[in-house]
Computed example of a mutant assay.
Amino acid sequence: MELAVETAFTPWASLAGGVLIGLSAVMVMGLFGRIAGISGITAGFLGAIAPMTRAPRDRDWRIAFLLGLIAAPPLVMLLGGTVTQSVPRNLLRMVMAGLLVGVGTALGSGCTSGHGVCGLARLSRRSLVAVLTFMAAGVATVFVLRHVVGAV
């Protein structure tokens, strides 16, 4: 059985992206004393704009962080770079995947950026377990989709 999956080899772009992710994590920790986990930042932002109990009052930096995530691809394109992205055509699958990710981040008390980037850097055992769980679930999902279901 032959499996052909093309992945672009982009060491410089990958290095630059990793440096920027690390820099943003350090800045969020240094400036605001918070972990740069996207799910936590988003939940805190939504809690600050919606009437909720224990809503954080630090909405401004959360807005800036999220706007930076949204603005980065257009900025790369304005500077002459290319951004490629594929979006599934099946809207129901995309909604289900988003809901599963949301449930997973709630159950795992964080997301891949919070646990994988920030938690591992702080040598958190809980984050190590979370990252190993993310990776195992990802490997199992890809195996089942490619070799059992044949969907990908």
Results as ranks from 00 to 15, higher is better:
Gly17Trp: 04
Gly81Met: 03
Val117Trp: 01
Met77Thr: 09
Leu20Pro: 01
Ala43Glu: 11
Leu92Ser: 09
Val28Ala: 09
Pro56Ala: 04
Gly17Ser: 12
Phe45Gly: 00
Arg62Gln: 10
Arg126Met: 08
Arg57Glu: 10
Gly17Tyr: 07
Ala71Trp: 10
Val131His: 03
Phe134His: 02
Val103Phe: 15
Ala140Glu: 05
Thr42Cys: 07
Pro73Trp: 06
Val103Asp: 03
Leu99Trp: 08
Leu145Tyr: 13
Gly18His: 02
Leu120Met: 05
Ser86Arg: 13
Leu128Ala: 14
Leu67Cys: 11
Asp60Val: 13
Ala151His: 07
Ala64Leu: 13
Leu67Trp: 09
Met52Gln: 09
Val144Met: 08
Leu91Thr: 06
Met52Gly: 04
Ala43Thr: 10
Ala121Asn: 06
Ser127Asn: 07
Ala55Tyr: 02
Gly80Gln: 08
Gly44Ser: 05
Met96Tyr: 09
Gly108Asn: 08
Leu100Lys: 00
Ser127Met: 06
Leu128Phe: 13
Leu79Gln: 14
Ile70Met: 13
Thr53Ala: 12
Met135Tyr: 14
Met27Asp: 07
Gly33Pro: 07
Arg34Lys: 15
Thr53Lys: 12
Leu31Cys: 11
Val148Met: 06
Ser14Ala: 13
Val103Ala: 14
Ala50Lys: 08
His147Asn: 12
Leu92Lys: 08
Ile63His: 01
Leu123Ile: 02
Gly150Asn: 06
Val131Gln: 02
Ser127Trp: 04
Ala8Val: 06
Leu91Cys: 00
Thr82Asp: 10
Ala140Thr: 10
Thr10Ala: 15
Leu120Gly: 05
Ala137Pro: 00
Ala136Pro: 01
Val144Trp: 10
Gly81Thr: 03
Ser14Val: 10
Ser109Asn: 12
Pro88Gln: 08
Leu79Trp: 11
Ala97Asn: 06
Ser113Glu: 05
His147Trp: 09
Ala25Trp: 04
Leu99His: 02
Val144Gly: 05
Val76Lys: 05
Ala137Arg: 00
Ala137Met: 12
Ala71Glu: 07
Gly33Met: 10
Pro51Phe: 13
Gly33Cys: 09
Val152Lys: 00
Gly98Trp: 06
Val117Phe: 04
Leu31Met: 14
Gly108Ser: 09
Leu79Phe: 15
Val103Ser: 01
Ala130Lys: 03
Thr141Val: 03
Gly80Glu: 06
Arg146His: 11
Arg62Val: 01
Leu107Asn: 04
Leu120Ile: 08
Met135Phe: 15
Ala121Gln: 03
Val142Cys: 03
Arg146Lys: 12
Arg89Tyr: 11
Gly80Cys: 05
Leu128Val: 05
Val76Asp: 05
Ala43Ile: 08
Pro88Met: 14
Thr7Ile: 13
Gly17Ile: 02
Leu92Pro: 01
Val28Thr: 12
Thr42Arg: 11
Met29Ala: 15
Ala136Tyr: 09
Ala151Gln: 09
Leu107Val: 09
Gly22Ser: 06
Leu100Tyr: 13
Ala55Val: 00
Ala137Asp: 00
Gly81Asp: 08
Pro88Phe: 09
Leu69His: 10
Ser39Gly: 07
Leu67Lys: 08
Phe45Lys: 01
